[in-house]
Design a protein around this nucleic acid. Structure first.
Length: 526
RNA sequence: GGCCCCUUCGUCUAGUCAGGCCUAGGACACCAGGUUUUCAUCCUGGCGACAGGGGUUCAAAUCCCCUAGGGGUCACCA
């Protein structure tokens, strides 16, 4: 059923990746826009895999593509895995229909057999090299009488099938670019079927994409700008097939910092890279949506629901967008700060395990404690992957907590450090065991106080400990830095970090004491 | 090189279709303050653009033309 439908209720869009094994950011954004367009208009989003021949590992690569899209939260209504009324959704399985279409075009004279050889083509190309204005290629045999052409084919002579381009020009209205006109003198009599016989034979991309879009009733094609100049070829093909074409919209390219099409040279370019780097998928989607589109020009952080509701291909910008890593990371941080502690804890856990700090079982066995740890770091990280290095001290040996140079330097700045450390240790010891666990329950589910219970610690809740310590400091006329810097170094070895009292509770009195003692020795001499 | 597309702060963009509300708005980055036990968060302020030139108009970022620059594409790849 050839589809053409402009009615909102029958919007059908697709993403047609070739199974390369990774989801390139450009593909991801194209998929996202198509998906948002479909979801926002009650239409359908279709996944079709362009697995034309080759690739022996296509099953694997195909799975990788689907995983990538799914990770982003994109889902499709029809596709190789879920089926649908217009299947098969694997291009390689649609060959028969492609051949059938080619047959029809041959009969109607829109295409012709070209018996010229590769050498002849090369010669022609070489001849065009120096020409000031290259002419479009017209097949040597484009005017061969049909009977003769058929007879030669029947006799076993090899040929390619080319599309006959007539004089004139093609004009169409692009959803994002407006009116585009391309003279036919620029368009070759392009090949729809490769030279018969050999292993490379078969239908070409521009041909099958039209056949398949037609068969699947695709109403709108949103794709990258690199396809803009292919559009007239496809338009002419729809016409030859006696069908109405879909509406086209060509998205601006995503650019690397050099201003050229984003490529491997620009660093991380696939969705999987960002997943591994610790970006929240929601942030990736949000950022991708910002490349060439804007909600209202004011709000940078928005949900997919808002994207779906507001997306309109006609509002996509025409100019390419340079991929800004800084802004991307900022956005990731926004999502991390907005996440619930429970969810954040869950998403960060694998990174901590992968870093070798502990096991998943350990974190699961003291989930309250782990959540409290994550809550402490929430406003300090932009990526899940930043968690391990920040919390590594919690898992370190008390006697050998790594001291960052700056932390140690800060600590040594204070002449009184050794006295302070020793005296404070006594102060902490005074809380030892004395019914601390009894009051901790008041601290709330996600709070550090709650974690103290899970961790078996025996210190008062952080606020209480803080008040008590401050009173203790006042007595000794000790300014906060003189206390804080040596203690922070002793407990964490880091120059900065979360509230010290929360940290002590997380550590528990035993570890706190052990670290204070170790620091007394480690910070004594030079 | 031919053809096609594009051109607002360093970057992502709003505004351009329906010219005046734009001494061009927001965000990232950067700089300076503030809050703070450090780090971070957060808050305030600053820096910073209509590629250039001609028109049209009472009025142009917005319309027209030219120039320049950038990108894409020129396969029996997808």
């Amino acid at each position: 059923m050839p589809g053409r439908t402009l009615a909102p209720m029958s919007i059908r869009v697709r993403i047609a990746p070739s199974p390369t094994g990774t989801v390139h950011l450009g593909l991801a954004r194209t998929a996202l826009f198509n998906w948002a367009f479909a979801r926002g208009s009650g239409g359908s989003f279709i996944l079709r895999v362009e697995d034309t021949d080759k690739s022996r590992n296509s099953a694997e690569s195909q799975a990788a593509i689907m995983d990538g899209l799914a990770w982003l939260g994109l889902d499709w209504d029809e596709g190789p895995d879920v089926g649908g009324p217009c299947g098969p959704y694997l291009q390689s399985e649609r060959l028969a229909s492609h051949l059938e279409a080619a047959e029809r075009l041959l009969a109607s004279g829109h295409v012709y057999r070209d018996f010229s050889t590769a050498d002849e083509l090369d010669a022609w190309r070489a001849e065009q090299e120096g020409a000031k204005q290259r002419r479009a290629y017209r097949g040597r045999d484009r005017d061969l009488a049909p009977e003769i052409s058929a007879a030669r084919a029947a006799a076993g002579e090899e040929f390619a099938v080319r599309f006959r381009i007539d004089e004139g020009q093609s004009t169409f209205t692009d959803m994002v670019r407006g009116t585009v006109t391309i003279p036919h003198a620029e368009i070759d009599d392009w090949v729809i079927l490769r030279r018969s016989g050999g292993p490379g034979g078969g239908p070409t991309y521009n041909f099958v994409v039209v056949c398949d879009d037609l068969a699947m009733g695709i109403s709108h094609v949103l794709r990258g700008e690199e396809h803009l100049v292919n559009t007239p070829k496809q338009l002419l093909l729809y016409e030859a097939l006696d069908s109405a074409p879909p509406l086209f919209g060509h998205l601006p390219l995503m650019l690397g910092s050099g201003g050229k099409k984003l490529s491997k040279r620009d660093g991380h370019t696939s969705v999987g890279d960002y997943r591994d780097l610790g970006y929240p998928p929601e942030a990736v989607v949000n950022f991708l949506a910002l490349q060439g589109w804007a909600l209202d020009g004011e709000r940078e952080v928005f949900s997919v629901a808002e994207l779906q509701a507001a997306f309109d291909p006609r509002a996509v910008s025409k100019a390419g967008a340079v991929f800004d890593q800084d802004k991307f990371m900022w956005l990731a941080g926004e999502y991390i700060r907005a996440a619930s502690v429970a969810e954040l804890a869950q998403r960060c856990a694998p990174f901590v395990v992968a870093a070798g700090l502990t096991t998943a079982d350990d974190l699961a066995s003291r989930a309250d404690w782990w959540r409290a740890v994550v809550a402490q770091e929430q406003e300090r990280i932009r990526l899940y992957s930043e968690i391990p290095e920040r919390v590594a001290y919690l898992f370190a040996d008390d006697e050998a907590v790594p001291y960052a140079p700056k932390a140690e330097k800060n600590a040594r700045r204070h002449e009184s450090r050794l006295d302070t450390l020793a005296a404070f240790a006594d102060f902490i010891a005074s809380f030892g065991g004395a019914g601390g666990a009894g009051v901790a329950g008041a601290a709330g589910a996600d709070g550090v106080g709650g974690a103290a219970v899970a961790g078996g610690a025996d210190l008062p809740a952080p606020a209480e400990l803080s008040d008590a310590t401050k009173a203790w400091m006042a007595e000794r006329e000790l300014p906060f830095p003189a206390f804080g810097q040596p203690v922070r170094c002793a407990l964490t070895g880091l120059p900065g970090g979360p509230d010290l009292f929360e940290t002590m509770v997380l550590l528990g009195s035993q570890k706190t004491l052990a670290r204070l003692a170790a620091a007394g020795a480690r910070l004594s001499t030079d």
